[in-house]
């Protein structure tokens, strides 16, 4: 039960050196097109929802006072059905429009694999001499779309790098594909987002986006792998 404590020690030996660390996992400071689109969708929905919420509050507030002769259909049909359908259609259109741009269409140039287990990540990506396997660190080129093939060893986990894209589950027996892209080189924090047992809170990982000219030469097995018997193959 306490095995992960050791792992946490090792983790803290490799500090997640990040500029602006207070937004490390924030979906609201996107660093790639997918996350950026979703962030815009969020701000749009927030504005629209605030307006709708205010509208309802105003209507409720205005109801206090003398009885009025109100046509029932105006409330149930015009507002209830017509108005809400119109608003929802706008929401739906926005959602589909953004969703369409997140779908991995055609093959991306780079494909990497993320394999989740209790409790950690094994990544497989192109390296200087063929594929390299790393633990808890994923290397990708910056500025290019990358497809992550997500799988799981034991129970369901989820792969999530909030600043780059939404999450996708790692389901035993299935392969899921997530397309993401880091606009700039840098380090991006990720974590497991599906409850997976006692180690769920300590399943973080890191995505390192390399300048495309350094990639895949710069990809090396990380120090951590030496400890956890991974390493270069």
């Amino acid at each position: 039960m306490r095995g992960w404590k050791v792992k946490r020690l090792i983790m803290s030996a490799v500090p997640l050196a990040l500029a602006g660390c207070d937004t490390e996992l924030s979906a609201l400071s996107p660093a790639g097109p997918a996350a950026a689109q979703i962030a815009w969708l969020w701000w749009g929905m927030l504005a629209a929802s605030s307006a709708l919420f205010l509208l309802v509050l105003v209507l409720v507030a205005m109801s206090f006072g003398a009885p009025r002769d109100v046509p029932a259909r105006r409330w149930t049909h015009t507002l209830g059905v017509g108005f809400s359908l119109a608003v929802l259609s706008v929401f739906l259109a926005a959602g589909l429009w953004v969703g369409e741009r997140l779908v991995p269409r055609g093959a991306a140039a780079v494909e990497v694999r993320a394999h989740a287990f209790q409790w950690g990540w094994r990544f497989t990506q192109p390296g200087p001499r063929g594929m390299v396997e790393t633990h808890d660190v994923l290397h990708i080129p910056a500025g290019e779309p990358v497809d992550v093939i997500v799988t799981a060893e034991d129970v369901i986990h989820a792969f999530w790098v909030p600043r780059l894209a939404g999450k996708i589950d790692a389901v035993p027996g299935r392969q899921n594909r997530l397309r993401l892209q880091a606009d700039e080189p840098g380090r991006y924090a990720g974590m497991c987002a599906e409850f997976c047992g006692v180690g769920h809170a300590i399943m973080p990982f890191e995505v390192i986006a390399h300048p495309s000219e350094d990639w895949p030469q710069a990809v090396t097995a990380t120090a951590r792998d030496a400890d956890s018997d991974g390493g270069e193959q």
Binding site: S63, R68, D69, T76, S84, L85, L88
Partner: peptide, 29 residues
Amino acid sequence: AFFSAASLLVAVPTAVQVFAWIGTMWQGR
């Protein structure tokens, strides 16, 4: 896409009720 649309659609009957309640409040005191 299908289930997303269906999930939005279910908001309509809920909205009908919310507006019917507010309308009731307008109609009365």
